[in-house]
Design a protein around this nucleic acid. Structure first.
Lengths: 237, 237
DNA sequence: GTTATCTATAAGACTAGACATATTAGCGAA
DNA sequence: TTCGCTAATATGTCTAGTCTTATAGATAAC
C-alpha cells in the first residue's frame, strides 16, 4: 500500500480522479476500454455518484476520457490533451521576473483602420480607431513591442486617457472586461522597422502574439505583441 | 426582455454563469466589488446553492472572480484570463486542413543524450535515448520539422517500433499516456541545417514548440517542433 | 434488407440538506 | 497597542435522492 491509499489529499473527487488517472497511465485500463459506470465506481470508492461524476468530468475535460450518455465512459483513444496559459499584464510579467518595469509610448493617434484589421474585427476599412505603438522594458532592456488598435465605441471613456504614463494593457484589463478573446502565436523576422525598437537585427526571429477581444458591443481591441529575441512563452497542462 | 431571459440554453448553472458574466461586462458589478453570496444568488435565481456554486466556480476558473472562504466572492481586479489550446496529432491537424498527409523519417538512432536536454529531463548526459528526426508534409509541402528524444525506460516496447511508416507522435499518444507535460513557444531563425528541410531560407523566422512529457516512471519524450514559415497557432478562451 | 420505432441505460443536471474549513472581525487580556 | 482567542460566516465538499436526456441496441414495420 502506498501513501496514496492512506491520504485522500484534496478531497474525495480529486482522489478518485488521481486514482483513475493512475489506472490509465499504468495500463490497467487501456485506450478505448470501457470503464465501470458511475454507479459501480461510487460503490467501489464508497462515495455518492455525484462525487464520481465530478471526478470523471474533470478527466473528460482534460481529454483523457470520452463520455457519452448511454454509451458509458471510455479511455480516450487519442487523448487530445489541452494546455492552458494565462494572459498576463506585461508589467506584472516583467516584475515577476525581478526586473524593473518601464514603457515608452511611440505614438498615439486616431487613425483610419487598415483593411488587414478591418475584416478580423468586423469593422469597416477606414473606421476611426485609436492606434497605439509602445515598447515595454525590463531593466531598460526592450521586452515587448506593442502595436494596438482600440475601438472607442466598445470602450466609453477611452478617448480621454493619455497612455504616456499609463499602460494600455493595464487600463483595458481593468476597464474593459471582454466576453471572447482570440489568440494566436506566430513567428516573424523583426524587419527594418521593428528591429531598432527591440534593439536587434532586422533578420532576427521574433515570437508574435496576436490578440483580439470582444464584448457585447463589438470588438474592443486588437494587438500585436512582438517579444524580444529569445523569449519563450510557457504553458502547462 | 431579451431572449437570454427566456431561454436558459444549456442548463441553470450555465445560465447563471452567463448572467453573472453579463453583469460584470456591463459594469453592474465592478472590478473589486463584493457580489452577493451563494445563498442570496440561489434565492434570486430560484435554484439550490450547489447550482450557484458550480456557476461561480466556473467563473473563478476563468479568472473573472476571486473567491475566498468567509471573505466572499469579488469581481477580480486584474481578470487574468486563461487561454487553452489543444495539442493535436500532426496527421489529424494536416488532414483537418484538407491536405494529404505524408511524412519522412530523416534519422532514427540510439544516441547519448546531449547536456542541453539532460537537465530538463532530469537524466544524465550520455544516457542512451532514441533520437528521431522527421518532416511532416501537407500536400507534399513541408509542414513541420520534428526533432525528438524518447526515453525507452519510460516506454516499454518502443525499442521494437520502426518509425519509417508509423509516426512517433501518434504512437506515443496512443501508447504512452503522460501525467505531466511542459510546453513552450518560441521563435528562431531556420538556420543552414533546418532551412532546406522546410524548403525555406536560413534567415526565415520559424515558430518553435518545445514539449516534454512525464509519466510515473520518468520523462517520456522531449520534442522540438519547427513549423513552416507563416504558420500560426490558435488558442481560445 | 433496410428503415423507423421503442426501450433500457448511463451520463447530465439539479435539489435540499449536512458537515468541514478557512478567514475575518470582534473581544479581552497582557 | 498588540497579541491571542473565539465566534460568525461564506465557500468547499459531499450525500442521497430525483428527474432529464441522449443514444445503443433490440424490435417491429416496410
Amino acid at each position: 500500500m502506498t501513501e496514496r491509499d492512506a491520504i485522500p489529499a484534496g478531497g474525495k473527487a480529486t482522489y478518485i480522479a488521481e486514482e483513475v488517472r493512475r489506472r490509465i497511465i499504468e495500463k490497467e485500463w487501456r485506450q478505448g476500454d470501457r470503464i465501470p459506470d458511475e454507479t459501480e465506481l461510487a460503490t467501489e470508492f464508497g462515495v455518492a455518484r455525484a462525487t464520481v461524476n465530478k471526478a470523471l468530468q474533470l478527466l473528460a475535460e482534460e481529454g483523457l476520457l470520452d463520455r457519452r450518455r448511454r454509451a458509458g465512459t471510455r479511455v480516450a483513444i487519442n487523448p487530445v490533451r489541452k494546455a492552458t496559459f494565462s494572459i498576463p499584464i506585461v508589467r506584472e510579467q516583467i516584475e515577476a521576473a525581478g526586473l524593473s518595469y518601464s514603457h515608452r509610448l511611440i505614438s498615439q493617434s486616431r487613425s483610419p483602420l487598415p483593411a488587414q484589421h478591418a475584416e478580423r474585427l468586423g469593422l469597416s476599412t477606414g473606421d476611426i480607431l485609436i492606434h497605439l505603438r509602445a515598447v515595454h522594458y525590463g531593466d531598460r532592456q526592450p521586452f515587448q513591442l506593442e502595436d494596438r488598435w482600440i475601438n472607442p465605441r466598445a470602450v466609453p471613456g477611452i478617448e480621454d486617457v493619455d497612455f504616456h504614463h499609463l499602460n494600455a494593457n493595464e487600463w483595458l484589463v481593468r476597464n474593459a472586461p471582454y466576453l471572447r478573446a482570440d489568440l494566436n502565436f506566430s513567428a516573424c523576422n523583426a524587419g527594418e522597422h521593428d528591429a531598432p525598437l527591440l534593439d536587434t537585427k532586422p533578420e532576427q526571429a521574433l515570437l508574435i502574439l496576436n490578440r483580439t477581444t470582444w464584448n457585447d458591443v463589438g470588438p474592443i481591441t486588437t494587438v500585436r505583441l512582438a517579444f524580444h529575441p529569445g523569449y519563450t512563452m510557457a504553458a502547462t497542462t
